[in-house]
Each structure stands twice: as structure tokens, then as C-alpha cells.
Design a protein around this nucleic acid. Structure first.
Lengths: 189, 189
DNA sequence: AAGATTTATTGACCAGTGTTTAATTAATAA
DNA sequence: TTATTAATTAAACACTGGTCAATAAATCTT
């Protein structure tokens, strides 16, 4: 029996999450096994259960993380010193950039179909949208309706979703993204 | 051993596809087994293999079907006697309606992540988009660019995708759909 | 009615799954 | 140095999955 290996860095929740994230994103929740994740890390699959109760909990820890990241990104754009309209544009673009830069995250956050997982999801999507909507609302003055914001959000979501499925990087579609954003901007200002 | 049952209607490709469609849509490709499909039909799992080579082939037969249906729907809207602008609106709305009425189909057509399945997909999505884009182009005159059409398509796609994931019926979101469509219409006329 | 053909059932195979458990070892504290 | 604790492993359990060969029944053909 091969003994517990002596390593400088023990297995950690973070290491597991990093490995799991990529796998989940690439193949989807159902197609990734605990054994695969463990293999990626060069540990035995049982080891993961020391750090996470089960597969679903590991997954939901990822989701939690990703929504935080999105919120941070949006927040930081909000803090840049720009004209409202410019800022709005950057928010739109920032949303797309986030989605396509962290496709793995985005898939997990918004494109998960699995019923079992939905039970593990919390307020994440709702909170992130709230933040987005409030930002947009405050940047456009009053002449924009809640519905308009929602429509714009869905339109951005459509862009990200499509290119996520095609697995294209943000760089590859940056031109298109700029165009899309400029077009949508017309709807709210 | 229970004998082969005598029925007035033998198992057919169509019957299998009908059962499979709903299951695939509800749970996704990976979560549906040949045994489940068979159970739904009250046949043994082996029977399906007489009609389809394997699971992937059954799935791709569905996809083929669904794109045809979408094309037919768009075609029939095109043939209604309406003002260009009205027609355009109906096309947009028709797309959403299709997506949410046949959520099963839509999932399979545009939201399938599975790599294995992608190999089985043909020109379906491309052809359907072509039809959509040409219709839009011809209905708006020349002042609309290819890029604009693509952006609008992605925006419709975003709407459908979101409500597909939430599993809401077209009736439930019809008001929202109308609003979304009217908004997008501003971008092309 | 007999035989040939088509369609279904069964059961087995093998590969894979999430999870739990009992060892077992490495690191740490006393 | 020893005892203790934390981390890891291998093995087992109890499944589910797709696929297919053997077999049987129903139907069609003659």
C-alpha cells in the first residue's frame, strides 16, 4: 500500500476547487466524477471527502465563489472615474468579459440545468442581478424602466451564453462584444 | 419470462422519439437512460436498439426534427399577409414562442453542451439562423447591418435561454416577451 | 399450417458512479 | 520519544449506465 505522501503542500479546499472548476466547466457536472477530480490532483478520490461532504457541496462552494467574483468585478468598474454613459458601457462590456473570461464559472453560475444542483443554489444569481440592475438604473437617470434593464440583461446573457457554448475566448469576440454593447446602449440612454 | 406482448401498435421510431424528447428536455441527455425511455413506453430497454443504433443516434434524430420544425414555423409567419414591420415583430415573437413552447427542443438544439453529441450535430443551427437572418434583412430594407441582426438574434436567444432554464411557459412570460421584442425592434427599424 | 421474418424480452457484461469505512501513515504536541 | 491528531489511502458497497447476444413470440408469406 502506498503510504500517505509527504508533501510540502497538503491538499486543500482551494486546490480541489481549482481542479474541479475546470473539469465541471469543460464537461458539465454530470460528466465529472470525484475520481477524475482526484486524478487531476494526483490524490485518491477518498481524500476529497475529507474536505467536502459530497460532490454537490463541492460544486456549490464553487458557485458561491463565482458570484462573489462577478460582484467584485462590477463593483470595481463602478469605482472607476468615468462619465455615466461610459461607465454604463463598461459595465455591459464587463459583464460579457466576465462571462467569457471565466466561462467555467459562468456555465456553473447560469447555465446549469441539473435539478439536484438547483437546490444547492442560494441567492447568488438574484443578488448579482440586483447589483447590475441598480447600477444601470442609477447611471441612466429615470428615463429607463425596470423592464428595459431586464431586457438588456437578457441580451447580454444571450451573447455570453452563445459564445460560451462555442467556447470562444473574449479576445476572439471582443469586436463583436463592443458592437453588441454599443447597440444595447442605445436602448437605455 | 414475460412474453412479448401483442399490441395493436408496435413500437416505432416516432413513439420512441416522443418519449425521449420529453425526458431529454426535462433532465438533459446525461440524466436520461435507455432504460428510462423504455419504461416510459412500457417496453424493455433492449427494444429501442432495434429502432436506433444507440443513444446518440436517437438523440440526433430528435435534433434533426426540431430544426425542421423551427424552419417551418418561421416560414409560415413569413407567409402571413402583414406589414413588414408587423411581420418582423411576429418573427421575433415567433422565435421566442418556439423556444418556450418546445423547450425540450430548444434545449436540445441550442443548449446542449455534451461534446459527444456535438459530433452528431449537422448544419441545423446554421441553416435555421440563415433563414432567420435573411428574413430580417429583407424585412428591414438595407439600413440594417449583418451585425445588427446577429445582435438581435443573440438577444432573443438570451430571453429564451433564461426562461428555458426557469422552465416557464410562453404564456407565463408572454407579456415580457412582447416587451422584449418591441424593444429589440427599435434597433432594426 | 409451416416456415421465414420481424420485433421484443431477458439477462449478462463491463465500465463506471458517489459514498463510506477501516486501515495506515505523516505531522505535531506533550 | 511517545502519544495524539489530522490527512490520506485502498477497498468495498450498492448502484446505474450502454450495449449486445441469445431467445422467444408475433406477424407475414407462401
Amino acid at each position: 500500500m502506498s503510504p500517505r505522501k509527504s508533501v510540502e503542500q497538503e491538499l486543500s479546499r482551494e486546490m480541489i476547487m481549482n481542479a474541479a472548476r475546470d473539469l465541471f466547466a469543460a464537461k458539465g457536472y454530470a460528466h465529472v466524477s470525484m475520481r477524475q477530480i482526484a486524478k487531476e490532483l494526483d490524490y485518491s478520490h477518498g481524500a476529497i471527502y475529507y474536505h467536502f461532504k459530497n460532490k454537490a457541496e463541492l460544486f456549490s462552494a464553487l458557485v458561491e465563489n463565482h458570484f462573489q467574483l462577478l460582484n467584485t468585478e462590477l463593483e470595481s468598474i463602478l469605482n472607476i472615474d468615468l462619465e455615466p454613459k461610459e461607465k454604463l458601457e463598461q459595465i455591459f462590456l464587463g459583464y460579457i468579459k466576465f462571462g467569457l473570461t471565466y466561462q467555467s464559472h459562468y456555465e456553473i453560475m447560469f447555465l446549469t440545468k441539473d435539478e439536484e444542483l438547483k437546490n444547492y443554489m442560494n441567492q447568488g444569481p438574484y443578488n448579482s442581478y440586483e447589483k447590475f440592475a441598480e447600477s444601470v438604473y442609477s447611471l441612466c437617470g429615470k428615463q429607463v424602466s425596470i423592464q428595459d434593464i431586464w431586457s438588456v440583461f437578457l441580451s447580454l446573457h444571450g451573447f455570453v451564453t452563445h459564445y460560451c457554448r462555442a467556447a470562444e475566448s473574449f479576445k476572439e469576440v471582443e469586436g463583436m462584444a463592443n458592437y453588441h454593447v454599443k447597440l444595447l446602449l442605445k436602448l437605455v440612454v
